[in-house]
């Protein structure tokens, strides 16, 4: 399917194959990729995280304001931003597990809180700038390969290894597949779920930093709509929304698919609002497609 899309992209616009455009597409894919890695973990555990876009923007705004263009501040502030992400994820996880609340509404609430926090902090007008080290993370590249893509693929690979090879990874699948069964097998279900949301928060904050490096300034709405894009990427990649099925490999393909699709919309000369419509359709179509594949598989 990815190949088919590559061909279609070329037909819609020959510009697509230019090295510069491929480079751009990969760059744009990586911020989405990083947050989709976190979203995959959450969805595998049977949850959903709608707060990632807000965490991304918050991390982006704080990075610009606190780094203020100084390379010496990159490492401490990066840690600070990741801590904010972890905090948001921890809040999501604690309310979801301790109070058994539906994650989509909890994470929507968290999104609103962090939206408020960054606007209160910047009074609506983000300030500061992104130092050159972080700029390299978002814009730089080694030859034809953007630095951010290497990081995205590395993170996906590490998380895939953890998912498939470690006890922790297997527990995430077990929780997503059947909570009660997991509980009876002696798995600490609330802690697994909590850790998954915390990780998603950290990945979202890191994705915000990648985006900050790409943009070069703090943007109050950086990453807007990425919660839906990430869900789209994960679902298109074959991870089941019910949890317990799927993996990072599918998500990587899904991320590239969604990004190329957005690119095609622009190259075809359609207004960018079309992207939103296309993504909505893709999410619905993917969920319907996989639910039918699953049902016919069960009947056989």
């Amino acid at each position: 399917m990815l190949v088919a899309l590559f061909v279609v992209a070329g037909i819609v616009s020959p510009i697509f194959y230019r090295p510069q455009n491929i480079f751009n597409v990969l760059q744009q894919a990586s911020a989405l990729g990083v947050v989709s890695v976190g979203q995959t973990l959450v969805i595998l555990s049977g949850g959903i995280d709608l707060s990632i876009a807000s965490i991304m923007a918050t991390s982006c705004v704080f990075a610009a304001a606190l780094m203020a263009g100084k390379n010496s501040m990159v490492i401490p502030i990066t840690l600070f931003c990741l801590a904010i992400g972890a905090l948001a994820g921890f809040l999501n996880g604690i309310i979801t597990t301790r109070r058994n609340a539906p994650p989509f509404i909890v994470t929507l609430g968290t999104a609103l809180i962090f939206q408020g926090i960054r606007f209160v902090y910047t009074k609506g007008a983000p300030f500061g700038s992104i130092p050159s080290w972080l700029r390299f993370l978002g814009r730089g590249g080694i030859g034809f390969v953007p630095a951010s893509v290497i990081i995205f693929l590395f993170l996906a690979l590490v998380m895939e290894a953890i998912l498939q090879r470690s006890a922790y990874g297997r527990k995430i699948y077990a929780v997503g597949d059947n909570k009660v069964a997991a509980l009876y097998s002696g798995i600490n279900v609330p802690n697994i779920i909590l850790s998954v949301y915390a990780l998603s928060g950290i990945f979202a904050a890191f994705g915000g930093l990648v985006l900050a490096g790409y943009l070069g300034f703090g943007d109050n709405w950086a990453g807007k709509g990425y919660e839906l894009d990430a869900i789209a990427a994960v679902v298109v990649g074959g991870t089941s929304l019910a949890g317990g099925e799927g993996g990072m490999g599918g998500t990587v393909v899904g991320v590239l698919l969604i990004t190329i699709l957005s690119n095609i919309v622009l190259l075809a000369g359609l207004p960018y609002q079309f992207q939103q419509i296309v993504k909505g359709l893709v999410v619905a179509a993917a969920v319907i497609f996989y639910s039918f594949v699953k049902v016919s598989g069960e009947r056989r």
Binding site: P102, L112, Q115
Partner: peptide, 19 residues
Amino acid sequence: FWQWIIKGIVVIVVVAAYK
């Protein structure tokens, strides 16, 4: 901006309240 924070907290408190 503060209203967003307050409303977000209200959402979370309310979902947490009804277990």
